[in-house]
């Protein structure tokens, strides 16, 4: 088994945080994991990418051109990852605008929604346990402002 996930968004949207939690949850299930961030020269406002691979075997090379799952959190990111066509699943913020608006999710918590979506999908694929992701998430953000909203949004992602 080798699963390739590409996360993309604007710098500051929490792409690398999402990546960190997914990797750590997959490690708990005994998988080999590789993560490499990619961002440009900009201090802020650029596109932030995370290339994740989860496998039964050791991973030789950290990058890839064809992800199995792509997550797109901004129009700018969509433009950047146009060439990285996904094989299994595409989570694009454009397709979830209505749910996010209906539930008054603030922009700062968009990543939590997609982390929820991913947690559910990856649990179905036996790659991680959603409870583990939540545990790690709470460890990281539990004492910070907006925790309640982040938690609520993660659960919203799980339900969608």
């Amino acid at each position: 088994m080798l699963l390739k996930i590409l996360l993309s968004g604007d710098g500051g949207q929490g792409i690398q945080l999402m990546s960190d939690l997914i990797c750590r949850a997959a490690i708990q299930r005994g998988f080999f994991v590789s993560h490499i961030p990619n961002y440009g020269l900009e201090q802020r406002g650029g596109v932030s990418l995370a290339f994740i691979q989860i496998s039964d075997n050791e991973i030789a090379y950290p990058k890839f051109s064809k992800p199995d799952i792509a997550v797109i959190l901004s129009p700018q990111a969509r433009e950047r990852v146009r060439n990285y066509e996904s094989r299994i699943m595409n989570y694009d913020i454009g397709e979830h605008k209505d749910v996010l608006a209906k539930n008054n999710v603030s922009q700062q918590s968009y990543n939590m929604f997609f982390l929820g979506l991913l947690s559910k999908l990856l649990e179905e694929k036996n790659i991680l346990q959603r409870e583990k992701v939540f545990e790690l998430l709470k460890e990281k953000l539990g004492k910070k402002p907006n925790w309640e909203e982040n938690k609520k949004t993660w659960l919203l992602g799980i339900k969608n």
């Binding site: 490499i36 950290p62 990058k63």
Partner: peptide, 9 residues
């Protein structure tokens, strides 16, 4: 830079 920024087990 790839090797330096990659995180692996």
């Amino acid at each position: 830079g790839f090797l330096m920024k990659t995180r692996q087990l």
